[in-house]
Design a protein around this nucleic acid. Structure first.
Length: 531
DNA sequence: GTAGGGTTAG
């Protein structure tokens, strides 16, 4: 290679090199308009003008833009990482829900001798919430104290969440007391903490002591009551709010949905629209779930139209809610149509469509989608298998169901849970293989639940097996649950077998319990949401 | 350039 070949790229690189200040300005400009590709191009073209801040800016932009892989690669290439770089990496790992990665990254940072700051510690604590690593909260607290960061409002609020998460009520209060300049966020964290600990009364008391309250304080209270299953208390707080935003409305709507009060949810949604508050994707997926819950295809379609008109961007969760709504409202073709058009699908989306076909009795279609999903390299989870097994049960695919049941553990390492056993009992039971169902129940590694017994009892009703039916009914009674279906099924079997004294006795008992014969519908379906 | 207190799907 001649001198020229070496010199030209060198010169061209340097002639057009931007100053650090200009590079920074241009990169920030591209990021602001969402053009990460050109920001990266400039970054790559100006290796000598890059400084730590620019590296951090790009890494952070990748994280915010849901490109954790690019962020990680750049972080790995980075020559001089400062504390902000590490904090950015930690927040990226937190975002992709990798608590172990967060912990290991923190250790690595410590090993290169960097001292954590307030950002580091609050990211750490919040990243470990609701994971097995939350036991580290007191240890992190120790670091906080040794670095004298205990009066920080940010660290304090994070610590309070951490302690509430591990159920330490005393520490929650102590951390709050130690925050020197408490603001409304610290107070909100205290209300949230007591709600998380399952003590709404104390949360309400603290709420009353607050020097100032904002819309978040009120929403925290509403949501806390909902989390503690006190829907009407939540509603009365909601009604007393002087200012509501889209989050407050959504919290209350989804609260109704979580508690099965679909009509209340839909009614509130209409009030929200009348109030002029614009729904967002959180609101709409809750509303779609409400439509699905009360099988209101008409309303579901209207919500769908609304989404299309409002121009809310494509979102995996919202689209999956639509798939589920159409499937549960009986329009499986529409469900599949939306599913097909989704540019991004995740495990939940696949589970929805498989469950949808299963519910419609289209076992073979469900299994086709299951195969397609596996071919695309998506690993099924325990929910997938509930849907697959239920598809087999509904489609009468006994042998296939058996194969899937064993492959679940062998191929995918998923331990069969009680709901899988319930599906298998249902599968064998519907097919009239009652001995196999019985055998399965007796060999189960745990106690059968109401759904397992219900499946067996249903099968006994279908195939008029009095002996096994009584065995199932006894199982249900041992769980101290009297379900009207139990009586009506037993009644049917007894009637068919001509055991009239028992029929009369059962009828008497039903009357005492106030049980009424139920309309058609499967017990399993209502318990697992599939069938 | 990094963090806190409230919301979504199977």
């Amino acid at each position: 290679m001649g001198t020229f070949d070496k010199v030209v790229p060198f010169i061209s690189r340097h002639i057009y090199t931007l100053s650090t200040a200009n590079l920074n300005r241009l990169i920030n400009g591209y990021i602001r308009i969402g053009n990460l590709r050109d920001a990266r191009k400039l970054f790559d073209q100006n290796p000598t003008s890059r400084n730590t801040v620019i590296w951090n800016t790009i890494i952070s932009a990748y994280i915010q833009n849901d490109e954790p892989h690019n962020a990680q690669n750049l972080f790995d290439e980075m020559p001089d990482r400062d504390i902000v770089s590490w904090n950015t990496a930690l927040s990226g790992l937190k975002k992709i829900k990798n608590p172990e990665g967060v912990y290991l990254c923190f250790l690595k940072m410590r090993r290169v001798g960097l001292k954590p700051n307030e950002f580091t510690l609050s990211i750490m604590i919040s990243a470990l919430l609701d994971t097995v690593f939350n036991v580290l909260t007191p240890q992190i607290h120790a670091s906080v104290v040794s670095l004298a960061l205990n009066s920080s409002v940010f660290v304090g609020s994070a610590l309070m969440r951490g302690y509430a998460n591990v159920g330490d009520r005393v520490a929650l209060g102590r951390v709050f007391d130690e925050i020197s300049m408490k603001n409304v966020a610290s107070w909100n964290a205290l209300v949230l903490g007591y709600m998380d600990l399952g003590d709404p009364d104390e949360a309400q008391r603290v709420f009353g002591l607050m020097p100032e309250r904002n819309v978040v304080s009120w929403t925290t209270l509403v949501n806390g009551y909902i989390g503690n299953k006190k829907t009407s208390a939540a509603r009365s707080v909601f009604d007393r709010m002087t200012e509501r935003n889209v989050v407050s409305w959504t919290v209350m709507i989804s609260g109704y949905v979580q508690n099965g009060k679909f009509v209340d949810a839909l009614r509130l949604f209409l009030l929200m629209l009348r109030s002029g508050t614009q729904a967002n994707h959180f609101t709409l997926s809750s509303v779609l779930e409400a439509c699905a819950g009360c099988s209101s295809l008409l309303l579901g379609k209207q919500v769908h139209l609304n989404i299309l008109k409002s121009g809310i961007p494509d979102d995996v969760i919202l689209s999956t809610s639509l798939v589920d709504m159409y499937a549960k409202c009986g329009d499986i073709e529409a469900a599949f149509c939306i599913f097909q058009s989704m540019p991004k699908k995740n495990l939940v989306s696949w589970n929805s469509i498989i469950g949808g076909y299963a519910r419609h009795g289209l076992g073979t279609r469900a299994l086709e989608e299951f195969e397609r999903m596996k071919r695309l390299g998506i690993r099924p989870d325990h929910v997938t298998f509930v849907n697959v097994l239920s598809a087999c049960a509904h489609g009468g695919l006994v042998e296939q169901g058996e194969r899937e049941f064993y492959s679940m553990e062998k191929e995918f390492g998923i331990q069969a849970a009680v709901e899988h056993y319930a599906c298998m009992v249902d599968l064998f039971g519907r097919a009239g293989q009652l001995e196999k169902a019985e055998e399965l129940i007796k060999g189960m590694p745990f106690e059968p639940d109401i759904v397992v017994w219900g499946a067996l009892l249903g099968a006994c009703g279908l195939h008029s097996n009095l002996e096994l039916g009584t065995f199932a009914a006894d199982g249900i009674r041992r769980l101290e649950q009297d379900h009207p279906v139990m009586y009506s099924t037993l009644l049917k079997i007894h009637g068919e077998k001509g055991v009239w004294t028992n029929v009369l006795e059962l009828k008497k008992k039903m009357k005492e319990q106030g049980a009424r014969k139920q309309t058609a519908g499967s017990w399993i379906e209502s318990s697992y949401g599939v069938g």
